[in-house]
Design a protein around this nucleic acid. Structure first.
Lengths: 204, 204, 204, 204
DNA sequence: CATGAATGAGTTTTCATTCAT
DNA sequence: GATGAATGAAAACTCATTCAT
């Protein structure tokens, strides 16, 4: 029984260590980029030996992909389409909620933003594919919502795919512009601004 | 006189060689990305010796920056604000013209797209600064036009800076999505789509 | 008394564990070779922790040498010179017996063959020295027997040292060729063949 | 024209450098063995930079295999079967000639011996395959000669394959024993001794 | 001015060994 | 006595840059 308890403690310690190295690597990658960041940087920052790193991760490549997967999964979770069924909250309110939720999630995860929006761009084919899948999923959700909106007469006539690209593009741009740095921002104002732009356009 | 002529010819030959290496490097960087592209790749593709490369360019870093400057300068030229003076073409027509002009410029210059939108992202602080200046200028032009439009009652009440970010973001996204690959696209349809989205939004 | 008994049992358990690790290491070394075999392989195959391994053996080097010593000792025992005293069995019968005994010993101990004939070759000076001593002893026994045979007129005039090298060489070659793999072989036929070759040569 | 001459000189210089590195590597591998020898050892001994090594050879593995191939090819050339046609030299004289030729070739190429007989043994599957092919070819030549000899009544009844293994084995053993070190030896005496042993055996 | 062989600092990765629990 | 996570020295390999020809 003592053995079980000890093994359990050991397992937990391992997971903690692993999580710690992941967190440190996230910082290092987001600060220096993928290529400029060396495993030396990571282990120095984590205060572990080189070998320890390789006990937990197969390679520099591997830990980066694990980070990327984890980050993408985290964000994917907060992205949901609009609920148009009866009894659901008003559409506009839902949209404000979703946008605010995402902006806040991003706001509290700055290193994340840098990796997905800047560090991981154009790295290699596999990374590109992952990001493209991620963005593709989001575009699909948006396009689907737009198509439904069109059927209900809420959304004007237009190519939903192209519109989805535009919506996601403006969204990403705002996030990159305002949350890419370390400054404080009024996330609520941003969420509202993005939404108004996408819904009402700029004409008076 | 003969000497002057000969010197002149030599200077021209040098400039041609320089331009050729730049052109080759543009291709190589756009295909492989900055890090994966090696000087070996460039000199092999250009058919010159390694040493020759270094007679024309100080470093890999240097030629990339020169390319980036040149690309940014080329695009900056095609971006102009809206002319609101009397006698100018109707605003909507101007906008369609500008957007179409830019989309076409990008369309005929695919390697450019890849470098500015993908290869140069997150490379290092200096590159980031250049891109930020480039995008900043565009945003300023847009924001200024929007502010003028608001004064004339053409543009609705909103934060012009934030709106500029959105406009540029949707624009970039469309370009990246449709012009990032090597496929044929209907550039006119894209130009119209982007414009309608930014001006009228999505609501019916 | 109880303490003595318990200590005894502990000692036996230790020796068993030690022997088991040795046996596993024999397999691992014979399959992968010295360098390709890692301590990880050994402890995994033995089902013990890395630290346990180092409680029984000082180093990878040490366990390999211990194995080598043990293997060499085992084989050395089955090698005895010819008994030429009166009343001894006929020489030819003795030789057949010895050769068959060795070939059988090797046959039932394939991992041994691989280590002594392949894995331990050219590893380092110390290992080389041990093998050289082993082979040297065998050559001495052979040479001595040959010298005695020459005095009795049984063996033709020749350099006994050189002849001993030849005899051992053909012996090793046959073993390596036929027992190095995992195939079944007719050990008796081999023993006879080697013997005939050494004694009668190839001429008609 | 001057360019052609210069290019020619450059090519020759490259080949010389390549040959020099190969020669140095032969020494280093033969002295330290494959694993203990590092590329650092080779480049230090050759007086070139690490990168230079990799301009000429793809990897440590690659240069070793090139050496091995070259060594095996060199020796394979000096091994020919017995010519039994009318008018050919007497068989015994041919054999003495061949054996002496090989022993001399080995004698003047001591580092070669170490690599093929010791360093390359049990390294990895590919190396083993190469050596096995080499020895297999030699055994084939020997066995074929023996079979022909049996048909002519020169060689006694026996399994030619097994006999070939014995012949090659005694040969290798003598070479390893007497030529593996750096000592002077009487190569003629060795050649004769090996031959007598194989042909006449040891019985009086 | 062109050439391309040489350079070597810097990177990722491995694995025998130690030691706190 | 057993455990296995941590260690870090050492290895193979890359590639932007230099410089003698």
């Amino acid at each position: 029984m003592a053995d079980t308890a000890r093994a359990e403690r050991a397992r937990e310690a391992r997971e903690l260590r692993r999580a710690q190295i992941l967190a440190v690597a996230l910082q290092v990658f987001s600060e220096k980029g993928y290529h400029a960041a060396s495993i030396s940087d990571v282990v120095k920052a984590a205060g572990v030996a080189r070998g320890t790193f390789y006990q937990y991760f197969d390679s520099k490549h591997a830990i980066f992909h694990e980070l990327l997967d984890q980050l993408i999964a985290g964000l994917s979770a907060s992205i949901v389409g609009v609920d148009l069924s009866e009894g659901a909250a008003p559409v506009r309110q839902q949209l404000i909620g979703t946008v605010t939720r995402i902006v806040d999630a991003v706001d509290t995860n700055r290193p994340f933003v840098r990796i997905v929006l800047r560090v991981a761009v154009g790295l290699d084919a596999e990374v590109d594919a992952k990001l493209e899948e991620f963005y593709g999923n989001i575009r699909s959700v948006i396009a689907l919502s737009l198509r439904r909106g069109q059927m209900m007469g809420l959304i004007r006539e237009c190519d939903p795919e192209l519109a989805a690209v535009c919506v996601l593009g403006s969204f990403r741009a705002v996030i990159e512009q305002y949350l890419g740095s370390d400054d404080e921002v009024d996330t609520h104002r941003l969420a509202l601004g993005i939404l108004e732009f996408s819904l009402k356009g700029l004409l008076a």
